[in-house]
Design a protein around this nucleic acid. Structure first.
Length: 133
DNA sequence: GCTGAGCGT
């Protein structure tokens, strides 16, 4: 008898999602347009061969400037390369020459792409985050 | 250890 009332839909609430033109935010935000990042000493290199290692990456970018650090990103489980890496130069002008000199070039049989790496969120340091005891 | 765009152990 009284079990048919569970399916009564409140039409008053449905109008907010059907008749209004603002059901959901059309575009929350676009903090990263996924375009070129700002010039920095940190470079993002993609298109690497699976066999390209960190030292080969460094050797490839060394002639264009002083490479502070180079690293091919590898999976921490399998240990294999993910096909991209990072190169950090001592100066931005060196990084620019590294991009100019290696972007679109071949490395281990693959055309690599060199561009400025995007800044990534820095982990807050509990000893220097501004909080005093 | 590959399928191959993509922003890190």
């Amino acid at each position: 008898m009284a079990l048919r009332s569970v399916a009564t839909c409140p039409r008053s609430l449905r109008r907010f999602f059907s008749t209004s033109g603002f059901g959901f935010p059309p575009r929350p935000a676009a903090p990263q347009p996924r375009e070129e990042a700002e010039p920095s000493t940190n470079l993002f290199v993609s298109g690497l061969s699976k066999r390209t290692t960190t030292e080969k990456l460094r050797e490839a970018f060394s002639p264009f400037g002083e490479v502070i650090h180079a690293r091919v990103v590898t999976d921490h489980v399998t240990g294999y390369s993910k096909g991209f890496g990072f190169v950090r130069y001592a100066k931005i002008e060196d990084a620019a020459k590294g991009i100019e000199g290696m972007h679109g070039k071949f490395l281990d049989g693959w055309v690599i792409f060199a561009e400025y790496a995007r800044p990534r969120p820095q982990p807050p340091s509990p000893q220097n985050s501004g909080y005093a005891n």
